[in-house]
Write a protein that binds this DNA or RNA. Structure first.
Length: 285
DNA sequence: GTCGCAATAT
DNA sequence: AATATTGCGA
């Protein structure tokens, strides 16, 4: 197999189009577009400060050339892989009317509770689109996201809780199978380790896993629950789901009513927040 | 192709 | 430290 040529296989070669490499420009796409001098400078906000203030629009984050480049890379990459057709097993999994969660970046204080009405700020693709990054920043498993994960796993039962299914039931936009697989792998180790030391507390390095208690059903083999695999017949949740709605439509969905202020998570005991945004950490690390 | 797991990379 | 990636045998 052709080893990757430096990270993320942007192998455009296949096309037969007249271009090569995402790095190069597709000149056909540029004809008719405004020239550089006709465009609003990156440094200039689209909405005049005064107007923004009048409507209480949060100040726009500065966009750098790098942001733009990332965004366009993302777009290009999305154009070539517009697959997302799970078509796996459940003929129902296709209910992709994703009303739910989507990526954001904790560049500034995003991971804290302080964003008031703040959408994701950083990178250029806003969540309203189905744009997820190719460069895909590292997913941050927030307690909320992990909770969702645990709930799905618990309802699937150990035997059915495989990455692909989990990913589908979590219904979090931008979440990949590998994200889940990686997390699941660690989670299993965590659960196993916790069983060994049944009366020890989780160690400091497990804070994410410790943020949601391991459901008893996950601590021993248990037959898969038929209902868990039949979304249409989905019934109540044993556990409260906070802002993440166990839709009465019979499927996991996050209700996206208005805003989803990120719930900072300090202790626990408030089951309030809507927050199941996956956070990404863009990785210039 | 997906899964699971360990090793390894970032 | 937390995730991602990879390799390989189911």
């Amino acid at each position: 197999m052709g080893e990757e040529a430096g990270g993320y296989g942007f192998d455009f070669g296949g096309g037969g189009g007249g271009y090569g490499g995402y790095d190069g420009r597709v000149t056909e796409w540029e004809t008719g577009l405004p020239g550089c001098d006709e465009l609003t400078p990156l440094s200039q906000p689209l909405v005049p400060p005064g107007l923004a203030a009048a409507f209480r629009i949060p100040p726009e984050p500065g966009r750098t050339l790098l942001d733009v480049h990332r965004a366009s890379s993302a777009t290009v990459s999305r154009l070539r892989s517009t697959s997302s057709s799970p078509s796996s097993g459940n003929g129902h999994a296709g209910t992709h009317a994703n009303g739910g969660s989507f990526p954001s970046f904790p560049g500034k204080g995003a991971a804290a509770g302080d964003d008031s009405g703040n959408r994701d700020s950083n990178s250029a693709e806003s969540a309203g689109e189905k744009a997820a990054a190719t460069k895909r920043a590292r997913l941050v498993w927030t307690p909320q996201l992990h909770k969702r994960f645990v709930e799905v796993v618990a309802h699937l039962g150990i035997k059915s809780a495989v990455p692909k299914t989990i990913m589908q039931l979590m219904n979090v936009e931008g979440l990949t199978r590998e994200n889940v697989a990686s997390h699941l792998q660690k989670y299993r180790l965590y659960v196993k380790r916790m069983q060994g030391l049944s009366n020890e507390g989780p160690s400091a390095s497990d804070h994410i896993f410790a943020s949601t208690p391991v459901p008893p059903s996950l601590r021993e083999p248990q037959v898969p629950h038929a209902a868990a695999m039949a979304p249409a017949m989905y019934h109540h949740h044993p556990a409260p789901m906070g802002g993440v709605a166990a839709g009465h439509g019979g499927y996991y969905q996050q209700q996206h009513s208005g805003h989803a202020v990120y719930n900072g998570y300090g202790g626990h005991g408030h089951g309030g927040g809507v927050s199941t945004y996956p956070h990404y950490h863009h990785g210039d690390q």
